[in-house]
Amino acid sequence: MSFKKATHELHHRRLGRNVGLALVLIAFIGIVFGLTVVKVTSGAFESPSVQQEGG
C-alpha cells in the first residue's frame, strides 16, 4: 500500500497563487498584531475597567 501524496498538474499550476495568498495572510496577521501592540502601549487605549472607574 502506497502512502505517496496525490499530486496533480493543477497543484503545480496553483502553487504560486497559494503561496502568495499564504504570505499575504501571514503579513495581515503580523500587521493586526503590531497595530494592537502599538494601540495598547501608546496610552490612548483604556481598558473597560479603567473606563468604568473613570466614568
Binding site: 496533480h8 498538474e9 493543477l10 497543484h11 499550476r13 496553483r14 504560486g16 497563487r17 502568495g20 495568498l21
Partner: peptide
C-alpha cells in the same frame, strides 16, 4: 475531485501576479 475540476489551460491559469 481536483481532477474533474481541471478547467482552463495552463496559459490561462491566473497567477498571483494577475490578481495584483
Amino acid at each position: 475531485s481536483d481532477v474533474s475540476y481541471n478547467s482552463g489551460t495552463s496559459e490561462n491559469e491566473a497567477q498571483f501576479g494577475d490578481f495584483i
